[in-house]
């Protein structure tokens, strides 16, 4: 007989197969938006997620993807959104950060407890040539979570997953 812990581990394996629709190398577990996942009754699972940005349009897609993934296993999902405590880039896993950099997006440079991070004074490393001789082009990038940077050594522009 399976224990509760076993099934929760399996749920997380399932959640690990779902990625952020805008950043496919980042699973929603690596993104740090899954708060909890537990059986509430036979065949019914409660998943609690915390949105990244309040207006992030990817959240609806992610919610649908979670429901679909569990439905394939014959499970029904009751999805809950929790805004407190607020999501922070500190919750992105180390694996997630490594995957981001390999994909060409510089991961958040600091813990958000460092005030310089919010003011755009991060030391951001170019994901191409690894130089830290970079400059911000715009604090707002192709999605709500990214800023636009440029490398002054290899001259490549790149996305930076900004601290929040």
């Amino acid at each position: 007989m399976k224990t509760v812990q076993d099934s929760e581990l399996e749920y997380f394996d399932l959640l690990e197969t779902i990625s952020d629709p805008e950043i496919p190398v980042l699973t929603i577990v690596d993104l740090g938006i899954v708060r909890s996942c537990e059986t509430i009754s036979e065949g019914k699972v409660k998943v609690v997620i915390t949105p990244t940005y309040t207006g992030c349009p990817a959240m609806d897609t992610i919610a649908d993807d979670i429901k679909k993934a569990f439905a394939k296993e014959g499970l029904e999902v009751v999805l809950e959104t929790q805004i407190h405590p607020a999501w922070t880039t500190d919750w992105i896993t180390e694996k997630g950060k490594a995957n981001l950099e390999a994909y060409g997006i510089a991961p958040p440079a600091h813990k958000t407890s460092d005030k310089g991070a919010l003011m755009g004074r991060d030391e951001v490393r170019c994901p191409q040539c690894k130089s830290t001789n970079t400059e911000v082009i715009s604090q707002f990038g192709s999605t709500a979570c990214k800023a636009l940077y440029r490398c002054k050594d290899c001259l490549e522009p790149f996305d930076y997953f900004k601290c929040l």
Partner: peptide, 12 residues
Amino acid sequence: IALTNVALDQIG
């Protein structure tokens, strides 16, 4: 992009 990002945050 910046103005529409701010718009999105406000709508959120």
